[in-house]
């Protein structure tokens, strides 16, 4: 076909109209990534359940060393699926609340879950009196598994979850307040980042169709964050404690983490879910 200057002008004009209008995502194209995300969450929860069982077994046996070693790698599975886990606020409180969430602090009877056990293991160096808390954590995780199983995932929560995870990193991981007794924050940090990237990857086809440059920018920031985290990986596949993280690395993380949180918060709009 012979291109006339007019046709060229028209084509250029079209390219300048907002791309989201031209390449709007058809809602039904989101069925596959949303369902793949549920499959991912279910697998992560299976891992969380079996690892929580091992962790609480060690706690109840009074095996302090093993319990301390298993604490962080067990939590990672929870951290990676927080956007869904958080939908059940009662369980989120009993599994993952921090001491600050409770008026009476460590002594509060409803301070339960990972961080309460963390307090005893790392601050008091003891497994004393944890039996009930260990059983409760196990029960709550199984309850969470069942509830997620019968939950129809709201697509806007799934897509919005990527930003939620990065906001969580910005708010609680860089400061090192999440795992204040064990200083294993980098595990959670990586769990949040992986969970956010998983969501981004599942919707990549629709996002790229919409805005390729945006996808490249997000990829670049994920790569930066991951490369800084990789510096603190240990030989056993775990992470150094957070107090080992150098000041300039903490500072270097702030920029890309905030940008990711900001950029990913536009995903819902980009995918037509606002």
């Amino acid at each position: 076909m012979k291109k006339t200057p007019l046709a060229l002008l028209l084509a250029i004009g079209l390219l300048h109209t907002p791309l989201s209008v031209l390449a709007a995502t058809a809602p039904l194209d989101l069925v596959q990534p949303v369902s793949d995300y549920k499959i991912y969450v279910t697998e992560q929860l299976d891992e969380l359940a079996s690892n929580t069982q091992k962790f609480t077994d060690a706690v109840k046996k009074g095996d302090l060393a093993t319990a301390k070693k298993l604490y962080a790698p067990t939590r990672v599975y929870y951290e990676s699926i927080e956007p869904i886990a958080e939908l059940f606020s009662d369980l989120d409180a009993s599994i993952d609340s921090r001491v600050d969430d409770h008026e009476k602090g460590v002594k509060a009877p409803d301070f339960t879950g990972f961080h309460r056990i963390e307090y005893s293991l790392f601050s008091e160096n003891s497994t004393q009196g944890l039996d009930q808390l260990a059983d409760g954590l196990n029960k709550d995780v199984k309850d969470l598994q069942n509830r997620v199983e019968s939950l129809t995932f709201p697509p806007e929560k799934v897509v919005g979850g990527a930003a939620a995870l990065m906001e969580e990193v910005a708010a609680t991981k860089i400061s090192g307040e999440e795992d204040r007794y064990s200083h294993t924050d980098l595990y959670d940090f990586q769990g949040n980042v992986d969970g956010a990237k998983k969501i981004f990857d599942l919707f990549r086809a629709q996002i790229e169709q919409n805005d390729k440059a945006f996808a490249a920018k997000v990829d670049k920031n994920f790569a930066t964050v991951n490369s800084i985290l990789a510096r603190y990986k240990t030989a056993d596949g775990g992470f150094e404690t957070y107090d080992k993280v150098k000041d300039n690395d903490r500072k270097a993380l702030i920029g890309p983490v905030n940008t990711l949180a900001e950029d990913l918060s536009t995903l819902r709009g980009k995918l037509g879910l606002n």
Partner: peptide, 16 residues
Amino acid sequence: MVAFIGPLSEFRVYVS
């Protein structure tokens, strides 16, 4: 079609 994303996704999980 937005209202059908949830049910259809969940059915795909069931099928899987």
